Amino acid sequence: MGADSWQEFLQGDENAFSILYCFYFNELLAYGLKIGFDKEVCKDAIQDVFYKIYISRTQLSHIRNIESYLLHCLKNRLFDLHNVETKINHINYNEIIVERENSVVESIIEKETELQLEGKIKQSLKTLPPKQRKIIYYHYKLNLSFDEIALLLNMKPEAVKKSTYRAIQKMRESQQLKNPIFTFLLPLL
């Protein structure tokens, strides 16, 4: 629904814009609240994001994943509002505590390991049905609780929990992964 409405909006359908707004508003609001912003600030930021999209739609034809784009824009707008509100113009480096510095080699090894793991996870996510992919995204990427996901997807929290468990099992089986990340994820359910 979102992708179809997005394409219709890009082609000039004013009604599709309204559908996009209604379709994504609750998800964007839940995301903004989850990352720690006030409800009214989130609402204002959502309005700002949709206003900007509306006035610049002719330059947005390259956007394929509107949900991801909206979440990214909202996060950026919220942090812009926060910076303006608190008048943060510089960083006081004396207040930043560096607990541990990695050597360049250690950093490269960590990054490479991260990229390999990320690739395996992305590959195994492709084996999931869209609804399970969305549940995994909400739970692990947006850190939404099962209750919050249940509200967004009109499901029961227990059904969300079971679907998450099954998705992780399926991901593990699809890659025959014995990676610690998959072992780590299951006990969190």
Rank of each mutant, 00 (worst) to 15 (best):
E85C: 05
E67Y: 08
I66C: 12
K122L: 06
L115V: 04
R166K: 11
K162W: 02
I97N: 02
L10I: 15
L20G: 01
F37H: 07
H139N: 05
Q176N: 11
G36T: 11
N143M: 08
Y165G: 02
K141C: 02
M1E: 13
G2M: 04
S103N: 05
I168D: 01
V84F: 01
E27G: 15
L60F: 01
K52D: 08
L188H: 12
I35Q: 13
H90R: 09
E27A: 14
N179M: 07
L74S: 06
Q59C: 03
T164N: 12
K134G: 00
S174V: 00
E148H: 09
I63A: 07
L151H: 12
L28D: 11
S145V: 05
Y165M: 12
K120W: 03
E99M: 14
E40P: 03
V49T: 05
F9I: 03
R166S: 07
E158S: 08
I97D: 00
F79G: 04
S107G: 11
I63F: 09
A3Q: 12
Y21M: 09
L29V: 09
M1H: 12
L152G: 07
E106M: 11
A150V: 09
I35S: 02
I149V: 13
H62R: 12
I96M: 03
L74I: 08
F17P: 04
E95I: 07
A30K: 02
L151R: 05
L125T: 02
Y54K: 10
I55K: 12
L74F: 00
T113N: 08
L185A: 04
I91A: 00
E101R: 08
S61F: 12
I63T: 11
Q116Y: 02
H72M: 07
F50E: 08
F23Y: 14
F182Q: 01
